[in-house]
Amino acid sequence: MRFKFLTIFAAALLLAACETPSEESAGTMTAATTATTSTTTAPTTMISGPTPGSQEDLVVNVGDRIFFDYDKSDLAPEARATAEALAAWMSSYPATTIGIEGHADERGTREYNLALGERRASSAHDYLVALGVAPNRLSTISYGKERPAVLGSNEESWAQNRRDVFVVN
C-alpha cells in the first residue's frame, strides 16, 4: 500500500517536474481517451491527444526519464525497459532526434557531478545505440547538479534528481 502510494507520488512529481512544457500532460491523457471513444463529438469540443512523435507523446507513452542509484551510472532494469521503449518509439518516428540530459543530485561536488552526469547520459546513449538507434539521432549533455527536477533536500528529491531526461529536439 505504502509502495503504491509512493509510486503514484513519484509519478505526480515526475509530471510536475518535466522541464519541457508538459503541464497539460495529465489533462491531455484523459482528453485523448474521451476523443477516441467518442469520435462523433463536434469538432469544436474535440481535443486531440499528444502530437505523435512529440515530447508530450514521449512523456505519456514512453516516459522521458530514467533514474540512477547514488554515484552510479549503470542502467537498472527499469531504466533499461524505458530505454527499450524509447528505441522502439524512435523507430516509429524516424525523423526524431533525442537529446539526453545527464543529471546528478546535490550531494556531490560540482565538477565531479558534471562528469557523473556525462557518464549517465553516455550510459543511456550507448544502450540506445546497442538497441539499434543511429548515433547521429542522439546527443548528450551533462548538467551535473545544476538543474534538479524535484525541489527540496531529502532522499526522495535526490532519488528523482539522479536521472537522465530524454528531450525530443
Partner: peptide, 22 residues
C-alpha cells in the same frame, strides 16, 4: 564537454577536463 579549468602557475596553460563518451 570541457570543464574544471585552472591556470598553470606561470599563466601560460589552462588545465581542464574533457568528458566524452562517458
Amino acid at each position: 564537454m570541457t570543464f574544471a579549468p585552472r591556470f598553470s602557475p606561470d599563466g601560460n596553460k589552462v588545465i581542464m577536463s574533457l568528458a566524452r563518451q562517458g
